[in-house]
């Protein structure tokens, strides 16, 4: 018998296997977590898989982003495209859609429509909260996962049952610890992704999922889990009594615009935060060239670009007309700021 799913079906049962094969899953992000989850879901035979990512493959990805090869890095292939290529080699019987796109509050609803589960494989809180808003609004389970260094967390948001990510986080945190500042090892990626995929398989099979926030530190050998039912907040603007879905609103988007005729892009963040520029300057030491600081802004060379950063978080990235490039430079730059 030519049944590639035989072992899985033996465990899950014929009914669940058929549900999985008729299901549709969307991955927001195709970095480390996304690579790992997407491969498991592809092998498991999820009927349709949509992969959204804005980035391209780089050498520093190869240590943990298991779908990509040296050739992908050499060709700077968009991750969504490289992922699809590899995944179709693994399983040609499923349908894979790849979207090379920046996910934001104004396009996410169109992307997630018709999917049964949303898998969080993003690398920042803002996109997570955007996905969380869209998931709750459309009643689609959202499987949160994140990791850095040797530590990771997971939580399954089941609309109308569990608290949502917004209940847990309360507000948009400033993220000052990321893979690019403190690093990451692949075992924690695999643990987080494996936990997320287990939740996906359970949800697709119709099994209940517990409202457990889980964390693991694979290096320190620590584990924790907390039943977060009590954190469901009736005043939550995403899942409470008066839902406004703030992260899907135009006024709360990080906005980028190409500055006419200047080979530069302006980024305006969603947060209303005041940055202490001299502290920021201090943290950037060694990372930037020709820094200039005045009471209103700091300006410096960063990677191949010139960044002019204002104290309200607005920035102009000189040296590109590409909004996606500018946003990723902006995100990388901001990682050096800490509270």
């Amino acid at each position: 018998m030519k049944n590639r799913y035989a072992r899985q079906e033996l465990f899950l049962g014929e009914k669940s296997q058929s549900k999985i094969q008729n299901s549709s899953v969307i991955m927001i992000g195709a970095g480390a977590l996304g690579s790992s989850s997407a491969e498991m879901l592809t092998r498991a035979g999820v009927g349709e898989l949509t992969i959204v990512d804005r980035d391209y493959v780089e050498w520093s990805n190869l240590q943990r982003q298991q779908l990509y090869s040296e050739e992908d890095a050499r060709n700077k292939l968009p991750k969504a495209v490289a992922a699809k290529n590899r995944l179709q080699q693994i399983n040609s019987e499923i349908t894979i859609h790849s979207l090379v796109s920046d996910v934001h509050g104004l396009n996410i609803q169109e992307m997630i429509k018709g999917h049964d589960v949303i898998v969080d494989a993003t690398d920042n809180f803002e996109t997570r909260l955007i996905a969380n808003d869209a998931a709750v609004k459309h009643g689609i389970p959202f499987i949160m996962g994140s990791c850095v260094a040797s530590y990771g967390t997971t939580f399954a948001v089941i609309p109308e049952k569990t608290p949502c990510l917004h209940c847990l986080l309360n507000h948009l945190p400033v993220d000052n610890m990321t893979c690019e500042t403190v690093g990451v090892i692949s075992p924690i990626v695999q643990i987080v992704a494996a936990t997320q995929v287990t939740q996906v398989l359970k949800i697709l099979s119709g099994e209940p999922v517990k409202p457990l926030l889980k964390s693991t530190d694979v290096w320190k050998d620590e584990k924790a889990e907390i039943d977060v039912t009590r954190l469901k907040n009736e005043h939550c603007p995403t899942c409470g009594n008066e839902q406004t879905f703030p992260y899907l609103q135009y006024k709360n988007q990080t906005k980028s615009e190409v500055l006419c005729g200047r080979d530069a892009v302006q980024i305006r963040p969603a947060t209303t935060q005041t940055f202490v520029l001299n502290v920021f300057m201090e943290r950037l030491k060694g990372m930037v060239t020709k820094p200039i600081l005045n009471p209103f802004l700091l300006s410096c060379g960063f990677e191949d670009y010139r960044v002019v950063f204002f104290k309200d978080g607005r920035a102009i990235i000189h040296g590109t007309n590409d909004k996606m490039v500018a946003r990723s430079i902006y995100n990388r730059f901001l990682q050096y700021y800490s509270e």
Binding site: A32, L33, D123, C147, V148, L168, M177, A224
Partner: peptide, 10 residues
């Protein structure tokens, strides 16, 4: 005591 803190990466 259980403490779980959130991180951004992925």
């Amino acid at each position: 005591v259980e403490i779980i803190h959130f991180v951004g990466g992925g």
